[in-house]
């Protein structure tokens, strides 16, 4: 039996066990965080001035019977903790109660809109990464070149320009002048949906791409100045080999910031959804806040928090996978 081989198998198994443990610990932490958040979100109902039951009635006619039925339905006469546990139980089953503004359950109201916002943020995330990361790498590789200077200038404009202005510009140019992309609405599902999302996604991506470009460029330039690059060159490694050394190292800070970018995207679609009249959760949230539609606000807040927390978890796991130093610390 090859002892070196069995030794390696053992370390592999051990490190796999360590990864599982790491994920479990981080999942538990994420769960705890969300639990605390859910409590705060629930407390919103009671922190809003006035009688919770009346708040839940909204603009309907307030009759004693209606109030009573709402009190029963939301267990408003129970002790606070019981109400919370009851609410939490429902939430875990996907039941956020009924919307005050629309006469449907919050869940039905959200189902389609969450999908749209997810699609919108995923599309603009993909655009951001596909455009900004390679450009950042290329600019860093040729610091001071024409490409680097023009991209760096463009990124300053990109970071500075307000989202709605970019959105309107794109609307006029591609929607109205050239008439390539639809200017309004969410499309009819399938490909048409994605087609409708192109302009809004570009709008969202423009500012972020500029930021990600800068981040990537900075990270790669920092790595290129490291001793190990000079040492690799001095040993006669090929450009390709050196690039792979550098990128693997630069990936660590870039991946972390990409996680933040996605979280930011998911929570920041409001302006674009309003500009392009998209039925996503951003525009829903805007409307619901104005109408004090509490169950909807609660649902959206909790949902956004969950997406952000899960993204953070994904970034941590990625970190663990690409940085052996973190892995080592995780094992201890």
């Amino acid at each position: 039996m090859d002892t070196a081989h069995s030794h390696r198998r053992l370390t592999q198994l051990l490190s796999r066990g360590a990864l599982t443990r790491f994920i479990i610990v981080r999942l538990a932490a994420t769960g705890l965080l969300l639990l605390v958040l859910s409590f705060v979100v629930f407390a919103l109902l009671h922190l809003t001035p006035g009688d919770p039951a009346r708040n839940l009635v909204g603009v309907r006619n307030v009759t004693p019977e209606l109030l009573q039925s709402i009190r029963d339905k939301y267990h408003l006469n129970d002790p606070f903790m019981n109400q919370y546990l009851h609410w939490l139980g429902n939430v875990l089953h996907g039941d956020f109660g009924e919307s005050i503004r629309n006469n449907t359950t919050v869940t039905t109201l959200l189902a389609d809109r969450v999908m749209l916002t997810l699609q919108l943020s995923s599309l603009s995330f993909a655009l951001t990464v596909i455009v900004a990361v390679p450009l950042g790498i290329a600019a860093a590789w040729r610091t001071g070149s024409a490409l680097d200077r023009s991209m760096s200038a463009a990124s300053i404009v990109g970071v500075g320009a307000p989202t709605y202005a970019v959105g309107l510009l794109l609307l006029y140019v591609f929607g109205l002048w050239f008439n390539i992309f639809p200017v309004y609405g969410s499309g009819d599902g399938g490909f048409d949906r994605w087609w409708h999302l192109v302009l809004p996604a570009i709008t969202l991506a423009s500012g972020l791409a500029a930021m990600v470009f800068k981040l990537t460029r900075t990270a790669v330039v920092a790595e290129l100045n490291q001793d190990y690059v000079a040492f690799a060159q001095s040993r006669g490694l090929t450009r390709r080999q050196i690039r792979s050394l550098v990128l693997r190292n630069a990936m660590i800070p870039v991946a972390t910031s990409l996680g933040l970018v996605f979280a930011f995207l998911f929570g920041g679609t409001i302006l674009v959804e309003v500009t392009f009249a998209l039925q996503g959760i951003g525009s829903l949230l805007a409307g619901s806040v104005t109408f004090k539609d509490l169950p909807v606000v609660q649902a959206i807040t909790l949902l956004t928090a969950t997406v952000i927390a899960l993204t953070a978890l994904a970034v941590d796991i990625l970190y663990y996978a690409v940085d052996p130093r973190v892995r080592k610390r995780g094992m201890q």
């Binding site: 490291q226 190990y228 040492f231 690799a232 001095s234 006669g236 490694l237 660590i252 052996p324």
Partner: peptide
């Protein structure tokens, strides 16, 4: 570089890539 002339640097803490295994870095050339 490499076949004729190589340069060994002062600081062993920075002259190797921190996220690549030693074996891989030795055999790269």
């Amino acid at each position: 570089r490499g076949q004729y002339i190589s340069l060994l640097l002062q600081n062993p803490f920075t002259s190797l890539s921190p996220v690549h295994r030693c074996g891989e870095q030795i055999t790269a050339a």
